[in-house]
């Protein structure tokens, strides 16, 4: 998507690039990203975490993650259970692996939803203006003025138990996973949609859009080929940072008991109930907690790097 975007916007930027080394926009962006040390560090950690949950998934089966044996409850880390066992004797290592898959899945898909909604609303409001713009922006403001966490909790309660368990790719997904993806996606698009609207408002008046309109291009064509590619940078940055925010949101709702329901593990719901075992079983919260922190932190680093790399004002 990045490449396409830059190829499309190339004609506009030619003036600025002509005098310099003839590197393609894509290479320049990549170079800037690779020079951002924290971003490279973040990508490496992120890669390790992805390998952990995928390779781990090959070694341990989901059955291992959900198998409980009360006689071995609350065992400290040992050779047999490297991360220890939880309150009903489930292996924490296996659960962090499968919990990680679900947490990352929720992060990515929820963001995909929020980006779709945010971009559509932003472009439609900015491009068409008038009454549509007014209505959409009032709606955005309404959503923004309710504290997100409280709205998430109310929605989680509303949808709880309404979606049946799904079978996908040979795996069973608790309906609550889909609910959480949906509500996080539907409550996190507002910032992006305002940003894009502001961008589109200025793009709409630019010469190349007027030119496109003059040769008879349809609104759909103009939006897709001329407006969208030029406002792609904030979308990419919002996508990266949004994944971290979505993983955190899931952890909050699940920690408060309204999120993904057991036996399906997520890093968030593994922490629920660990409050009562802070002193006698620190491994209960340490491993899933550290994985959340590492993931969120490395995504934030990557997002920072992407922002700098895509910023045309940042130095070579």
């Amino acid at each position: 998507m990045t490449t396409q975007a830059h190829d499309n916007s190339a004609p506009v930027q030619i003036g600025a690039v002509a005098a310099e080394v003839p590197l393609s926009n894509r290479q320049r962006t990549l170079n800037r990203f690779l020079r951002h040390r924290m971003a490279v560090f973040g990508s490496t950690i992120l890669l390790c975490i992805v390998l952990f949950v995928t390779i781990g998934g090959v070694i341990y089966s989901e059955r291992d993650a959900n198998f409980n044996d009360v006689s071995r409850r609350l065992q400290p880390p040992s050779a047999e259970h490297p991360f220890g066992t939880d309150t009903i004797g489930r292996d924490i290592l296996a659960r962090t692996i499968y919990g990680g898959q679900i947490s990352l899945l929720i992060g990515v898909t929820a963001v995909f939803m929020s980006i779709t909604v945010g971009t559509t609303f932003g472009i439609v409001a900015g491009y068409y203006g008038g009454i549509i713009d007014a209505l959409l922006m009032r709606f955005t403001e309404a959503m923004l003025s309710i504290p997100t966490l409280l709205l998430l909790l109310v929605m989680a309660k509303y949808f709880a138990g309404r979606i049946p368990t799904q079978e996908l790719f040979g795996r069973t997904f608790s309906g609550s996973v889909i609910v959480i993806i949906g509500i996080i996606g539907l409550t996190s698009w507002m910032g992006l949609s305002r940003l894009i609207r502001a961008n589109v408002l200025s793009l709409r008046e630019s010469e190349f859009v007027t030119a496109a309109r003059a040769i008879g291009a349809s609104d759909f064509h103009i939006i897709l080929r001329h407006v969208l590619p030029n406002t792609i940078a904030p979308v990419i940055v919002a996508t990266t940072l949004g994944v971290a925010a979505a993983i955190l949101s899931e952890a909050y709702i699940s920690f408060l008991g309204l999120g993904v329901q057991p036996p399906t593990a997520t890093w968030g719901n593994m922490l629920e109930g660990s409050r009562s075992h802070i002193d006698n079983a620190p491994w209960l919260w340490f491993f899933p907690g550290m994985l959340i922190v590492l993931t969120v932190m490395s995504i934030n680093f990557v997002g920072d790097g992407v922002r700098d790399a895509l910023d045309p004002r940042s130095r070579e």
Partner: peptide, 11 residues
């Protein structure tokens, strides 16, 4: 900034 509030509380 990357630590969820509840984890910070627990720590």
């Amino acid at each position: 900034y990357s630590i969820p509030v509840f984890l910070l509380g627990i720590i």
